[in-house]
Computed example of a mutant assay.
Amino acid sequence: MELEVVIEKRFYRCREQKVWTENAFPYAFWLRYLSVFSTLTIIARVHEVNEPQSQWQQVTGEGVELVALPGYVGPTQFLRALPKTLSILRKRRNRAGRTLYRVPGILSWLHQLIVRPSRGSYAVEVVGDPADTFAKGASSGALRPVIKAVFTSLLRYQCRHAGAVSYVTRAALQQRYPPGQQAYHTHYSSICLHDDDYKKVSTYTISRPPQLLCIGNLSQPYKGCDTMLQALQLFQQQRHTVQLTWVGGGSLQLYYEALAEKLGVAHMVTFMGNVACRARIRQLIDACDLFVLPSRQEGLPRVLIEAMARSRLCVATQVGGVPELLPADRIVARDDPAGLMRCIQASLAMSAGEQLAEANGHYQRAQDYHDSQLQQRRVALYHTLRQLA
């Protein structure tokens, strides 16, 4: 049986008609669905490029194909691409198979309107919260409150009428976007951690200066890079030296590099851009003393779990499922540079024994997200979707 997955991710297609991703969702990711379904069709935005960059990975392969919707960024380009998008979706009507929406997102809603899978016959994987995405500070624009209200209402509708629902959190997203009374529901992350992704340490030593690490795409402001840079400025004003590495590129990278210069902290931060190699990501995590997640919006942050799996001290903002991962004294309000600085200082000021105990506590907590455990719940949802009337 065929599965159709609608996702908001933007992919790239080169002149050879191969489809690529700059970071997430390579071909290996989609194999989890083929454990139950015979073929998979991805429906997503695709941008045309002359050739892929060296670190990009292919998306499609045996059993996995892609239907390319017009690539767009922002509301103006979305409106221009809308007629062609609707035309492509109309051709998907009356196709045999099952539908799964990775939500939130406008494409899943358009697909639901045009292709019209009946109530209770589709599944959703809830991987984020539009209430956080369109919160004040996380996005801008005069229509932000309206967009927030519309997207949260759409997500509630999709969850309420789906036959099967998965959430990346254990409880947080379920409370805001509950499933229908008759729906099958479960929880699992998109993360894929195997034995080599875990590392338990026997000692914990802080470098001089302490090495901080952030991982987040810089295409949108909700990763909180500005908050992190403002926290660095506060460190500098108190004559405390730390060094930050930010992994993740995007259209706003040059803006944040200029902001670092303006704040006088450019010498304290290194912007690495995108890093696609998993082994290299593990090396960067291992080399840091403290992993920091200053986001304004998350579902269940995979990078935070990856850092926990490597026995790193972690600090994060109060977003999404973060309280399900870290103790309250390692969580700060979003958009609070001073609070973020104090929380980082508290982690670095612990004794070596306290740091080791906390780091290995993170390691133990991350065991719950080993792929062998998550895949069991994923497969259960896939089987439920396949059997829906």
Rank of each mutant, 00 (worst) to 15 (best):
R312I: 01
L110G: 14
M1Q: 03
T41E: 10
T270L: 02
Y222G: 14
V46I: 14
I344E: 01
D368M: 02
H362Y: 05
P178K: 01
Q233K: 15
I281Q: 03
V319F: 06
V269C: 03
A328V: 12
S351P: 06
L69A: 10
P117F: 10
R170W: 05
V5S: 01
C192D: 08
Y184W: 12
T99I: 09
R342F: 10
I191Q: 06
G320A: 12
G128I: 02
L388D: 04
C343D: 10
F11M: 05
D329E: 13
M228G: 10
D129I: 09
A164W: 07
V5W: 02
E306M: 05
P210C: 06
L232F: 08
H362V: 04
K262S: 12
R119W: 11
G63F: 00
H161M: 14
P337M: 08
S347L: 10
K91A: 15
V46F: 12
S87C: 03
L40G: 04
G61R: 07
I215A: 12
A171E: 07
Q283I: 00
S139W: 12
D368T: 00
T245C: 06
S140D: 04
R278Q: 11
Q318R: 10
P26T: 01
E257D: 04
P75H: 07
A81M: 01
P294Q: 15
G71Y: 04
T169K: 13
D197W: 02
Y157V: 06
M308V: 05
L229Y: 02
I281M: 15
S87T: 02
Y12K: 15
R239T: 08
C192S: 14
A149N: 15
A309R: 00
H370S: 10
Y122K: 14
Q182R: 06
F291W: 15
M308F: 09
L213F: 01
I285P: 14
V315N: 07
E125W: 11
A149C: 08
I285C: 11
R278W: 00
Q283D: 09
Q57E: 09
P179T: 03
T99H: 11
E358L: 08
Y198D: 05
D197Y: 00
V46T: 10
A81R: 01
V269D: 05
T227A: 09
Y255A: 15
S207Q: 14
S207I: 02
Y382Q: 08
E2T: 13
E298A: 15
R330C: 11
A172T: 09
L31H: 06
P75N: 11
P83L: 12
A171H: 08
A258L: 15
S121A: 13
Y33P: 08
D335R: 10
D196S: 15
G353M: 07
L79A: 09
R116E: 11
G137T: 08
W20H: 13
T169R: 07
R312G: 00
L244G: 12
E125K: 09
T203C: 07
I7K: 13
P70Q: 14
E298S: 15
P26L: 04
Q376S: 06
T76M: 10
A135E: 11
V247H: 01
P145A: 05
I281R: 11
Q77I: 06
F271A: 04
H111Y: 13
L34M: 07
Y27V: 02
Y184T: 10
D196H: 15
A171R: 11
V73W: 12
G74Y: 03
A28I: 00
R160W: 05
V292C: 03
M228S: 09
E125H: 14
V146C: 04
P179C: 07
